[in-house]
Amino acid sequence: MNTKVTIAGVEFKNPVMTASGTFGSGMEYSQFVDLNKLGAVVTKGVSNVPWEGNPTPRVAEVYGGMLNAIGLQNPGVDVMMERDLPFLTKYDTKVIVNVCGKSVDDYIEAVEKLNDSTADMFEINVSCPNVKEGAIAFGQKADALYNITDKIKRVSKKPIIMKLSPNVTDITEMARAAESAGSDAISLINTITGMKIDIERKKFVIANKTGGMSGPAVKPVAVRMVYQCANAVKIPIIGMGGIMTGEDAIEFLMAGATAVAVGAANFINPKATEDVVNGIERYMISHKVEDINEIIGCVK
């Protein structure tokens, strides 16, 4: 049975990754999950300098999921290179560093520093709905996305994955812009912008007013968008959005994703990533799938 998949020349032992921002840099969840079992650890977004993030409350539960507006708090790329990446090199898993920024120069600075690190790939976060400057501004207009993808691609020594926002009119336009600017892959979906109001206190539950929605309720939206993008571009897709089980992951693969990422499920079940790996293998055995690549995009 083969579970290996390849994206931009990087081979993953299986298609299961962590979704950026839900897994730190792996250290916390290594108490619950054998990181060696994962296709890749995708780190929490890191910027050229430390970011404080948003005021609290930053998280809220909603029906079928949650809202978050962490605001990309992170210790900056230097700490990631000194502390987090050396930790991850102890494991036999691929490492994808998620990079965020407020300006093109921020992204470039972080990518240039990370160029000589042990990271296997970069995922470029142009789709966080919770920071006011930059980030999503690059991910909601096709020409801006093309521009930043092109500039990062010119300096990056590693393959890049542009992470797309679902908060757009037509996600295939964004996928095409990323592809034509040279992105090696795309990942989707980032969270869907949402809002929750506390009707007793007459206040927003999240201090940022809006937050990104994730969790099982967003899965049908994400599967649809992965399917649309798979029909629009030739570069590989990493699909995510509400994956809780191996069966959920199989849906994304059939829609056209080459790999998947597990996000909010980590908060609901700290062993979720490993459970998804095992669930995929069980599906392959019971459905006599010899090679995982057979089912990628098999539903037309």
């Binding site: 839900t22 404080e52 409350p57 998280v59 708090q73 900056g76 909010a264 908060f267």
Partner: peptide, 24 residues
């Protein structure tokens, strides 16, 4: 809070000095 184990950074409070983990 969401994760309870320090991964999601949902449950922070302001500190006087820079925090060793977060560097903010």
């Amino acid at each position: 809070m969401a994760c309870g184990i320090g991964a999601c950074l949902g449950c922070v409070c302001r500190t006087v000095k820079k925090d060793e983990h977060s560097h903010v």
